[in-house]
Design a protein around this nucleic acid. Structure first.
Lengths: 219, 219
DNA sequence: GGAACCAAAATTGGCGCCAATTTAGGGCAA
DNA sequence: TTGCCCTAAATTGGCGCCAATTTTGGTTCC
């Protein structure tokens, strides 16, 4: 009983997936469907439906719902069930504010750390985003945007930061559709990506901050 | 054979305590014990031990462990169990960096928003901290410090931010003991609290930023 | 004497059943 | 017809049992 033994056998990461009707984690699948708008904000997530939809067991569903509730993506009402959280305007703007502070806060570091290969990588991701504006789905666009911003933040040399921002981003984007209303705005986002890259190449931290500000506040 | 059902009678065994009918959430209890250092970093958390220690069922333990694993406070190794995560130096400094960026980022807003009652409230919390330096336990001190910083951040008018920082703070402080090594450093922290308050009263955003920087980086 | 091997105990993790609670529907009375 | 209540169906949530895997301890062989 009690504790001890700091036996440190390092956990093998184990990226096991595939095989069997259960591809990976049900949490991820439900999350994707929420993001895609298939599971609309406000709708009730009946365990029996999810069970059938994803071909998994009841307890897997319950664990997934509990995790999503911890992340604030769904809300739990005891003896009633779980429903998709509908983020209000206040929360959305507060989270935008946090993103702004963080990304502005590391802009200087990004400019300092970025080398030629990093810039090339960013440019590749920005181009991928532009391509998907024409040819991709909204979901692919969302992923590409996330990839660009993750790569950008990674240049600050703070891994925790990348994960943190990825997490809080998800809190507002129950349905990414609601974010990017018009195609004009999406194309504008694409141009802003290239503005950021240009600022990084010029080692112009202030210009990068401006570009990020416009990009996040979308105005 | 199987002993005890959900029988609330305290298990004899080792002289454990924590005998509550079911206080609320087991997650919180385990968290407290991790923070208190009772469950040391690196130690394995056997489900059967926790079950007995907190007088709860197996599945409550499992849910709590899963939640703590989501929050990165414990690590899960399939078929081996959960052990308390031992944060490395890199992660600790990265999280300090994030806190720094966020708190500096809202320093201006805090100075603008803080009214006389807010300052009085902060001063009360700072005094409470000072009092506990002499009379309280390390755990109480930790709580008081958290209360001060939460109140400070709340002045920025961003509720999400308060919760976010509270969350990431926990990630490094598996054992708060490791943070505040010397009493001299703790007393220094107390003085810095008052420096921050003074800066807020003078509406001096830059002074507040300096004070926060020294406080977080502890140098 | 040491290492590899095998059997027994301990631990984790999953599955299914069933009780508690909530929701839906139909009948009865005003 | 409208409103209320009571019963039946649906849903959530908890608990115990058992299979799979790992760890421990003892034994044998080199």
């Amino acid at each position: 009983m009690t504790v001890m033994t700091a036996d440190r056998t390092q956990a093998a990461g184990a990226g096991d997936e595939a095989v069997t009707p259960t591809p990976g984690d049900v949490t991820e699948l439900i999350l994707q469907d929420i993001m895609a708008g298939i599971l609309a904000p406000g709708s009730w997530l009946k365990q029996i439906d999810l069970e059938r939809r994803y071909g998994c067991t009841r307890q897997e569903v319950r664990r997934a719902l509990d995790r999503l509730a911890q992340k604030r993506l769904v809300q739990h009402v005891p003896n009633r069930g779980y429903h998709v959280h509908a983020p209000d305007g206040r929360q959305a703007s507060e989270i935008a504010e946090i993103r702004l502070i963080l990304e502005i806060g590391v802009a200087g570091r990004i400019v300092l750390n970025a080398g030629a290969p990093d810039v090339a990588q960013l440019r590749h991701l920005a181009n991928e985003f532009d391509r998907l504006v024409l040819e991709g789905t909204l979901m692919e666009l969302y992923e590409a945007n996330l990839a660009f911003h993750s790569a950008l933040l990674a240049l600050a040399g703070n891994r925790e930061l990348v994960e943190l921002v990825t997490d809080i981003r998800r809190r507002t984007s129950s349905a990414p559709v609601s974010q990017w209303r018009t195609r004009a705005r999406i194309e504008q986002s694409g141009r802003e990506h290239h503005q950021m890259i240009a600022a990084i190449e010029r080692r112009d931290g202030d210009a990068l901050k401006d570009a990020i500000t416009h990009h996040i506040l979308q105005r």
